[in-house]
């Protein structure tokens, strides 16, 4: 046996015992490319909490918010950690919109896809004190005077504005789009009648709906939301006859070139989190669309979604000039 073979053998023996899969050896940094309290932040903290409660990870998961530049700060930070197995990031639609609108040197292809946890719905809301009980009535009112109604949304050139522009183009309307900092703030401005309608995610307006302050008019999806009272809300197609639909990704990515065995561990870990009653309860309450997917299925979906955002943003004139 030559020296080289002996050394190789020692190295093999010194490495992880055969069969034992990769496990985190230090705390995992979970980057949220958005501020505290929003939908992505909530889900990241929920995952971290579930991991703690059910002992699903040998090391703690530490949530870190890097919201600067509409999430660019978080994406570029993870992009720079090539090969790191202890960093993951949760994404929302700014995965596509931020690079397309600001031109920062980043694409989701730089990252390692791990899993899609859920898809978030969008609903057209109005204040409950307005006389509009159907989307048709509201749209008719918008049509009466151009630029007569104010649509509130989160940020600029992000999902809410994309959706507003889609609606405008499908129906030949013009809203005044008012950008706010976060979804919760948008809905409160609707309750306070500072805007006329919003396209909030269900969870952002759910409690105000239950309290009778806001009214949902239509869901921006191809089918109704199949849980609880949400079932009553018609789709945009049913209500208005045009097919405007949009779902937002709640997915997890790793840094570029994350080791294969680490990816496998995270996939298994996230599946366990996904299957806990706590996570399922959260999905139900927030009317999120259960959509766990990994591997090729996930990549294919992200590719299609990226193309969709390119088209939608080009149509809305939101691409970086």
């Amino acid at each position: 046996m030559g020296l080289k073979t002996a050394l190789a053998l020692v190295l093999v023996l010194a490495a992880a015992p055969a069969g034992a899969a990769w496990e985190p050896t230090k705390p995992i940094e979970f980057v949220v490319p958005a501020g505290t309290g929003g939908g992505a932040d909530q889900m990241a903290r929920l995952i971290s909490g579930i991991a703690e409660k059910h002992k699903l990870s040998p090391r703690p998961i530490i949530v870190v918010n890097k919201s600067g530049g509409a999430g660019a700060e978080g994406f570029l930070d993870v992009k720079s950690k090539k090969g790191d197995a202890h960093t993951i990031i949760i994404t929302l639609s700014n995965l596509f919109t931020t690079p397309l609108h600001t031109g920062i040197p980043f694409s989701w292809r730089d990252l390692t896809p791990i899993a899609r946890m859920a898809l978030d719905q969008f609903i057209l809301w109005v204040n409950a004190e307005t006389p509009y009980t159907t989307a048709k009535e509201y749209i008719a009112a918008v049509n009466e005077k151009p630029l007569g109604k104010k649509m509130g949304g989160t940020g600029s050139a992000q999902e809410d504005q994309i959706l507003t522009i889609q609606l405008e183009q499908a129906l030949g309307l013009k809203f005044i789009y008012v950008p706010f900092k976060g979804g919760g703030e948008v809905c409160v401005n609707l309750v306070g009648k500072h805007v006329d309608s919003t396209v909030n995610n269900p969870i952002e307006c759910a409690s105000h709906w239950k309290a009778g302050r806001v009214r949902p008019l239509a869901v921006f999806d191809t089918a109704r939301i199949p849980v609880g009272e949400w079932k009553e809300i018609p789709t945009v197609k049913e209500a208005l006859g045009v097919d405007v639909h949009y779902l937002m990704l709640r997915g997890i990515f790793g840094p570029p070139d994350m080791p294969k065995d680490a990816v496998d561990w995270y996939v298994a870990f996230l599946k366990k989190v996904y299957d806990t009653p706590d996570f399922q309860k959260y999905l139900g309450e927030g009317a999120l669309k259960p959509a766990f997917a990994t591997g090729a299925e996930y990549v294919k979906w992200v590719e299609g979604n990226e193309q969709l955002h390119k088209e939608l943003m080009a149509k809305g004139g939101l691409l970086k000039k």
Binding site: Q42, R45, S207, K210
Partner: peptide, 21 residues
């Protein structure tokens, strides 16, 4: 911002924050 994080907590504990609480 602190209240924002607590709000996330309410949801995770299974409470619906808002007017009906």
């Amino acid at each position: 911002p602190t209240a924002a994080v607590m709000l996330g907590g309410l949801i995770i504990w299974g409470l619906q924050p808002g007017p009906l609480l």
